[in-house]
Design a protein around this nucleic acid. Structure first.
Length: 497
RNA sequence: GGCGGCAUAGCCAAGUGGUAAGGCAGAGGUUUGCAAAACCUUUAUCCCCCAGUUCGAAUCUGGGUGCCGCCUCCA
């Protein structure tokens, strides 16, 4: 089996063959840092994170570059509104971006080039396009003449004719039109008074939006890369224009594979800046576990739209608990099982099924069905033990299943590490695990819980069920759940959310 | 107007020619003083509608209906 992925260029699934054996160069269009990240960003970067992790799982050496747009009209506007410099503004939101990504367990890119650090590279490309008579200067602006690039439209599969016919009203009426042709786009914009600027052969100004990616791809990864990815909304015009710039400049294909992720909808409607219906990542994380968010996103295929609803998130939250319990198995039961460490993970049917799913254009919903299967086995074993029954798988089998689950979850970026969970009161729990759960409402000391449990046991013995139930209710109100075992013993744990 | 996507159980969602994965929710049972937790079992004769191709279609073809997106800053 080999990896096949959907290439926007051909609109087909293609076998993935990297430019250089065992190395993959990926460039992902990053954020414009003038505001908090929203769920759409979460989806995009989770999806590309999984693509990257899977390629690494397959043994590729992945070079992952994601740019930061730190100069553009919106940044300028926001900086003016807040009366700060653009650097102050962008530095702040880069920090916020990093926090959001870390909470979602998104691996950091190998490089985060900033637009402002690549102005010289942009100027060089623009100059070469002018020299080739593909770009033209008007006043202090420079525009790209799309009609000079014969394959313009090949990515988004549209022709200049059809766009002009359709856009009718919109195309003609832009203010102060100095372009020779409606779909020509800016490579360089002359600075208006009071705006930050860089000097250039065409006067003081700043780069257009699209040119930065052309310059940064070239500088960081080279003239042709393997995968160029981004949200579906970047397909046109952003990526189309990048292709026009880079390929006219180098004469070589910019990327072999173009991948685009679907949107996040809110109540069936696209979440967007203009509709003002977007939800920020941190506002969502106030209510939901970050891994539930990841699961919510990976439960649909990356090219399909997903609808963010409370119901879907509740479902994902509960689903995550199942996986989480599977992942926690080794932590909770390492001491109980006849645990042989350092056992090597052997290839098995689950891993093969996982590969088959992911090889088919990153079919994470199917991959997750395998995760659920594994997690259920472990959860069951765990509960058998917790409820005092004997386990029925031998430790060797359990370890293999545990490690398989761990491996697959690592590849999907699902981790138990930064996720709150229930915690059992009487079972051996490793210190490191306790550390991760300190934010759980630790309201009552353990001794007190044990005392109440003992009192309840005594009440039950005397058939004083009213008192026994009262104690049970009292603990429940404090977030503690009792588990009566078969032999008459009682365990406790925090109620899972 | 141009281009594209989607329509599968109460909800979410795979499958894309061989007789419906998975998650959530629901139901029944075992257990229990009663619960909870847990465990076991179970939940679409059918995949928007019509016609066609085929031994056979949710899956292919033609037509229809509905929803959504891109063409404008956007992940």
């Amino acid at each position: 089996m080999s990896l096949r992925l959907f290439n926007t260029l051909s609109r087909q699934k293609e076998v993935f063959i990297p430019l250089t054996d065992k190395r993959v160069k990926i460039y992902v269009c990053g954020v414009t840092v003038y505001d908090f990240c929203h769920l759409g960003h979460a989806r995009a970067y989770i999806v590309w994170d999984v693509v990257r992790r899977y390629l690494e799982f397959c043994g590729y050496n992945v070079e992952y570059v994601q740019n930061i747009t730190d100069v553009d009209d919106k940044i300028l506007k926001r900086a003016q509104e807040e009366n700060v410099t653009i650097t102050e503004l962008t530095d702040r939101f880069i920090q916020e971006y990093n926090k959001d990504m870390a909470s979602l367990n998104i691996k950091t890119a190998d490089r985060y080039p900033k637009a402002t650090e690549h102005i010289q590279g942009m100027i060089e490309i623009i100059q070469s396009l002018i020299d080739k008579d593909i770009a033209y200067v008007v006043g202090g602006d420079v525009y790209y003449a799309v009609q000079k690039f014969p394959s313009y439209g090949k990515l988004s599969h549209r022709s200049l004719d059809s766009m002009q016919a359709g856009a009718s009203g919109r195309v003609a009426d832009s203010e102060g039109e100095v372009k020779r042709y409606p779909f020509d786009f800016a490579l360089w914009k002359a600075a208006k008074p009071g705006e930050p600027y860089w000097s250039s052969p065409w006067g003081n100004g700043r780069p257009g939006w699209h040119i930065e990616c052309s310059a940064m791809v070239k500088s960081c990864l080279g003239e042709t890369i393997d995968i160029h990815a981004g949200g579906a909304d970047l397909q046109f015009p952003h990526h189309e224009n990048e292709i026009a710039q880079s390929e006219a400049h180098t004469g070589k294909p910019l990327a072999r594979y173009w991948m685009h992720n679907g949107f996040v909808n809110i109540g069936g409607q696209k979440m967007s800046k203009s509709l003002k219906n977007f939800k920020t990542i941190r506002s969502v994380l106030e209510y939901y576990d970050p891994m539930a968010v990841r699961l919510f996103i990976l439960q649909a295929h990356y090219r399909q739209p997903i609808d963010f609803t409370e119901e879907a998130m509740d479902s994902a939250t509960k689903s995550w608990q199942l996986i989480h319990e599977g992942l926690r198995f080794n932590l909770d039961f390492a001491a109980k099982m006849d645990w042989c460490k350092d056992q090597e993970l052997k290839d098995n049917q689950y891993l093969q099924d996982f590969r088959a799913a992911m090889d088919d254009d990153f079919n994470t919903p199917v991959a997750l069905s395998i995760v659920f299967e594994l997690a259920k086995i472990l959860k069951k074993e765990r509960n058998m033990l917790e409820h005092g029954s004997a386990n029925h798988l031998n430790s060797h089998e359990v370890i293999q299943i545990q490690q398989t689950l761990q491996k697959i979850c690592d590849t999907l970026g699902l981790t138990a590490a930064n996720s709150a969970t229930r915690q059992s009161g009487t079972l051996t729990i490793q210190a490191e695990l306790l550390d991760t759960n300190h934010h759980i409402n630790q309201t009552i000391p353990e001794e007190e819980i044990q005392l109440l449990i003992a009192q309840r046991k005594e009440a039950k013995k005397q058939k004083n069920y009213q008192e026994a139930d009262r104690i049970r209710d009292e603990l429940k109100a404090k977030g503690i759940e009792l588990i009566d075992q078969k032999g008459g013993d009682t365990l406790w744990r925090y109620i899972s959310t």
